[in-house]
Amino acid sequence: MTDSFSCIQNQYKEILKQYLEDKNEIGLYQAQQFSKKVLEHQISPEETLSFHLDAIEEFFPDIPHSLRDSFDFLLEVMMGYGMAYRAHQSLRDKQKELEAEINVAASMQQTFLPEEIPQVDSLDIGVISVPASKMSGDYYHFIRDENDCIGVAIADIIGKGIPAALCMSMIKYAMDSLPEQRLQPGALLENLNRVVEQNVASNMFITMMYGSYDPHVHHFYYSGAGHEPGFYYSQKEDTFEELYAKGLVLGIKRHTKFREYHKQVEPGDFVVLLSDGVTECRTEEGFIEREELIELIRKYKELPAQEIVEKVFYELERLQDFQLRDDFSLIILRRKV
């Protein structure tokens, strides 16, 4: 450290001397490059100033006393910058530490999400879930029960980032501890609501849509707890309609009932479930309209479900200049033709 320090000090002296002789832009360019070097070696402003003073005293031994003393004055003024510079360095280190911690937490959170999408002969399923920052407040889950029914849950926890992620772990464990036998969507939400209501702060809540697909008769049963409506695409009609299930968000009222809805799914029809990060995608011109979202999905509807969700995500991400404002989750379940 001391070696490189005096080495850098010598270098400063040399380039300054060169500049005082030539007085050209090359010298100033070197000074600019030098400033990168001092930062790299974590040399503080007051030290750089002292390099200057030492060099000047060497070049001009007859420098007037008062001019020399003025540097002491300037040195004292630079102390504040020096302290701020060191505080910045220590904060930067702390930030790195925090980031490392968050990375660990984020990879832990990944284990809360299903590793793979269930494979069902009659269904084509696509999922994408991307957090706005490292940790996500969106949750999704697939369950396959003994009757081969596929349960799909999509949930959005209030807020985003770490607080939402902490709350998400609760939902994950609550889902895991539900009774083994198949629950009707409404009953499942009632169960979860009790857990959430007892365990969250007064201003927290969770929205969820839960659906159950019976591949034997191709019925889709679903209930919603204040969740952003999805879409239902009917191939025969070639139309998208809103897939909405009225219900209060989870965590507000202990004894909330959730109505159950039902769709007869025809070949080629598909269900779109999403989080509000999809519909609240905001561009310079304002929020995207649900109609625009429908057009996007329509554009890719011939592709496999996984490709549709990926393409739609990419386009919306691009519309927002690749900066997500909210966690983004999109799920498509299509009955194969």
């Binding site: 007051e46 030290e47 100033l49 002292s50 003073l53 040195l75 102390m79």
Partner: peptide
């Protein structure tokens, strides 16, 4: 102490 360290101690 050199002038930089003097200033640091004073600060």
């Amino acid at each position: 102490f050199g002038n930089v360290d003097q200033a640091r101690i004073a600060t």
